[in-house]
Every structure is written in structure tokens, then in C-alpha cells.
Write a protein that binds this DNA or RNA. Sequence first.
RNA 1: GGCGCCAUGGUCAAGCGGUUAAGACAUCACCCUUUCACGGUGGUAUCACGGGUUCGAUUCCCGUUGGCGUCACCA
Length: 481
Amino acid sequence: MKIRTRFAPSPTGYMHIGNLRTALYAYLIAKHEGGDFLLRIEDTDKNREVEGAIDVIYKSLKLANITHDEGPDKEGAVGPYVQSERVKAGIYMEYAKKLVESGKAYYCFCDEERLNSLKREVNGEMISMYDKHCLSLSKEEVEKNLREGKPFVIRQNNPTTGKTKFTDVIYGEIEVDNSELDDMVLIKSDGYPTYNFANVIDDHLMGITHVVRGNEYLSSTPKYNRLYEAFGWEVPIYIHCPPITDENHKKLSKRSGSASFEDLVNKGYLTECIVNFVALLGWSPSENVEIFSLDEMIKIFDYKRISKSPAVFDIVKLNWMNGEYIKKMDFNEYLKFAMPEIDKIIFKNYDKNKIANFVKTRIENFLDIGEKVKFFEKIDDYDIELYENKKNKLTIEESKNILNDILPTLENIDDYSNDNLFEILSKYSGDKNIKLGKLMWPIRIALSGLMSTPAGATEIMDVIGKEETISRIKTAIEKLK
RNA sequence: GGCGCCAUGGUCAAGCGGUUAAGACAUCACCCUUUCACGGUGGUAUCACGGGUUCGAUUCCCGUUGGCGUCACCA
């Protein structure tokens, strides 16, 4: 049988990193077996509707390179793919009524006040379980209420004794007591289905074979199972994914700053890298590799290797991985990302490609470039202590002398290419019997005002040219007086 | 609180009854080197605890502890 998976987000306006991973896994599971991956929009909560939210979903999936075979914008055989449209088609109500007929569901007319009276507080949390009050209503009473236009919901009628069990690929067999099963609302008073109901109906109608979702649904899955059984439908293969948490082992939230895909993109992370990284949060391949493309992932993804325990979202490792992606990048591709950052900082007529090349192996994020290269444009004030360097056994006084001695030589050079400068300075260091490192140190400090730079002294001179070099050396000599 | 799930270094993790308990990030040291970075080499650091089962448990079972989830006309 052909595998069909789905990603079913509700349009909330942003793509949570956990959702991205769920989408990715669902996509990988389908594609690994040459199956279909569909997109379904779960917009059954009118109060939470966010304008433009669906576009965010399209945009995010596109950025992540996760492409669906069917969806609102790619009609297939089992549409529509937006739940609000399916509500209009009367799909959910039709099935809910079937359940009422078979006694697996019932009308409920309880008002808010009555429902509130059922709530109780435990550890600061309000919890409640419906007491089946309306189940005892006679058929006549129900019809009378309906005729009078009394607001109603339709609830699932769950047994109170016995047990319900289901199997999850990741978590194994799970069995719960039926007394734990709340008579959850299937159809809300506004006529919309709840997630709990729409999900089951649509997954079945759309031929979904593998249900991939977060493990927060683990506890409600028995109720879904009873729905499948009530309809006589085949239960799908469940794949519940472990949570992704922040460093405090709490659910990744907006406060953590990196909870959404677009946040991460805006913070300078490569989309391909984010996808790669997120795949590894709760899954590992059988081969000991960590960096792979989407296509490679499709080949090696085995959902049975998804883990059970939560994974901490470690931004430090993401940083590392982003650096790896940058290093591996084709130079021209790299320039597309790097140049805008350099353009923000460097206005002088320097060879920016060279500057970009210097930092390629020294950054983990494009947003770090500016800070690293700004000295090319202008030297910040610095402490002359920098001229003292223990490793090279160099004192401030010696630095001053070196600078003074080297200045005439520098003034006599016309070819300011790195190779030429390096050759001349190497020879100079030999002639004067000064170690190369010791000679280069003060020059580099004079040219940059920094303890560490993304380039060596001669490389810097190459970029800023003779005039600027001489000027900076002279300024440094003044500073050292 | 009921129910459910989870438990290997600081983090991601491999492991699936017998291993010197992989690998990666981070960290430390050294090497390379015109500084830094890159690259290379090596080091520190993990099976939560207590009972079983077994010739033998990180691995299987039970309990304890801890963490997380869930208990909505949200998904």
C-alpha cells in the first residue's frame, strides 16, 4: 500500500520549530517509500484565525524545501484541504450524526455555567471532565431543544469501564482505563468540529496511513481510536514524536527566541542547515553521520529510529553546524549571503571579495561578519598594551622600534599584493634576524587595532593598499610615542 | 491530584545480555600558523537510585526519585 502522510498545521502565523520537524518527518516517511505527503489546513478555531497565516505556512515549507503532493494549492482527489471548507461541505456534521445514531455520540445542551461547575482546581490548573449529564436526555427532549434552536454541541460517548489500547511505533503499546476517557466535544456550538474530531475524519477520508504528530497527543489518542472503531475504520499507524525543549527542559517558547523557523532564518541560519539540525532532534541515522542534504535524508530516514525522550534545542550546536554549512558553501553562493553584510560596513573602495574570503572559515553566522571586518573601514581606538605579546616575547618598546624600522621599507614597495609583501617581509625578518611572527605582530596591530583579525598583516595591507597602510603605521607610531 | 510517557557525559546521541560504553557539539591541552580561525592530535566527562531475573546487566522486570505531557466548545 502506498504510504500517505500529512502535515496538518493550524494557521497561527508562525512555524514553530517542533512543527517544522513534524512536517519534515512526515515528509521523509512518505518520500522514503515513494509515498504522498499532503498539506491540510486545520482552521477550525475561528477565534484564533490570523491573517496571512496560511502564507507563512506555504513560505516556510518552501524555504525548507518540503514540498507537498496535495494541498489547498494543489488539489488532489480527496479535497478540499482546508477544514473550514470541509465544514461548509457538511462533512463533519454528517459523520457526527452517524455517531449519534449509533449511540457513540450525543447532543449536549449544557451551558457554560454548568460546565464551569464541573471544573475543579488542581495545582493551580483548572481541570474538568464531563459528567454525561445530557446523555440521559430522551429523544423527545433532544428534538425539542433542537427545534427551539437551543445551542448544542455533540459529544463522544465513551465507555466508563474496561480499557482501550493502541500501539504507537515509537512508544509501543499503551493501555488506559476507559474511566479516563472524557466525553470530548466533537462538534462545537458554532457548528465547527474540534481538532479531535476533524483530525480523525480527515485522516481517514484522505487515506492517511501514517499519522505523525507530537507526543502531547499521546493521551488523547485512545479517544481517537474509539472514533475509528465506532466508524469501523482502520486505525492508522501512529508515530508520536518526542518534544523539543529549551535548555531548561521546558517547552520551546517564543521567549527562548528561537522557537520559530522564521526567527532562525532571520538570525542568519541557513535554511538547509536548520532542517538538517532539526531532523537530528529526536532522530539519528544508523550510519554515524550528522550533516546531510534533504535528498540524503530521504534515503536514510528510518522512522523506527525516532527516539522517545525529549531533546534540548542546543543553539550552540546549531551555530557550529551553520558554520560547517558556510565553509562547505560554493564561493559565489556564499557571496550572496556575505556581501550584503559587508556592504553594510565597508564603504571604501576595497576588494570585498577578498574580505569575504577571509571570513568564510571564521564565521558561524553571516550576521557576525560586520563585527569581524569593520576594522578595514575604520580602526577603533585601542589599548597600546596590544603591542605587547608574550608568545613572541615582544614588548611595547620593541613594537615601536619595529614599526619605525619597517616604515621606510613599506614606503618603498610599490606592489602591494599579498605575495609580494609577504616575500619582502619574510626576507626582512631573515635579514634582521627577527622572527616572522614577532615582526608581523605589531604591523597587524597597527593596521587593525585588534588582538585578532580574520587575516594576516600582509593580507590586510593587500586590501587596504599602500596609502592607507602607511597612514595607519604612522598613526600607530604617533600613538606609541 | 488522576492518568500517560520518559530517564546513557553540560547538550545531541550510538548501544538493543558479555563493548576499553561509539560519534558530534561544548570544554581543556598540544601541533600547525604572519594574530585569530580553519585543520590535526589527544584529554576531562555519562549508564539517576534501590531491588530482582541471569553465570553475567547500561541493556529485561518491579519499585523509588526526578522530568515532561495531558485532564478546553485550542490545536
